[in-house]
């Protein structure tokens, strides 16, 4: 048992409890806060795995960015009274059965698998620098193309989202 193991189990239990609370919460705003907690546990796992950079990204992007964005979206769109959702018992049980069976299948496969020894990791002097260089490297093993394509994706999706969310001015040409 490594010294980090108790922390792993602690955060794993916390993540499970928060995830359950997030899914079962009747209130959208509370669910978002629970979700932020789950994401924080994810950051903790990265720290335990010695991936500090990823932990930082997780905190910055997911908790600092996405959770806050979700909260803004909830507050800007509807009054808190409308945020309650009560699924019917059938839907609830069906969802439970489906999730449990997926979990059961995954656990069964993971437990049954004969895992190989971990791949030897290349030592990185400065992993963040290596990552940055790789993202902009047009040569072998570089990720320049996906890096550029993802910027097109973000641009287009942002513009399309603005178009869809903007109040209608009535001058656009309907396509059908």
């Amino acid at each position: 048992m490594r010294p980090s193991d108790p922390f792993f189990y602690l955060f794993a239990l916390l993540a499970l409890g928060l995830a359950r609370a997030c899914v079962c919460s009747q209130h959208l705003l509370r669910a978002t806060l629970y979700l932020a907690g789950v994401l924080f546990c994810g950051a903790a796992f990265y720290v335990i795995l010695d991936a500090e950079f990823l932990a930082g990204i997780q905190l910055l992007v997911y908790i600092g960015g996405i959770s806050v964005l979700l909260i803004f979206a909830i507050m800007l769109t509807r009054g808190p009274d409308l945020l309650k959702d009560r699924p019917s018992p059938l839907r609830r049980n069906l969802a439970l059965a489906l999730s449990l069976s997926f979990m059961g299948l995954c656990s069964f496969l993971v437990l049954r698998t004969d895992w190989p020894a971990a791949l030897p990791a290349e030592p990185h002097e400065n992993p963040v620098r290596d990552m940055g260089v790789r993202l902009l490297n047009p040569g072998e093993g570089g990720l320049l193309l996906p890096f550029e394509v993802i910027s097109v994706l973000l641009l287009c999706v942002a513009i399309a989202a603005i178009y869809l969310a903007r109040p209608g001015s009535g001058e656009e040409r309907p396509l059908s």
Binding site: L153, Y163, G168
Partner: peptide, 23 residues
Amino acid sequence: ITLLIGLELATLPAVALSAWARR
């Protein structure tokens, strides 16, 4: 990675387009 990003770039704009008739 390129495969996945390409798939997302093909799908997400199509999702937006399918909601385009706002009325």
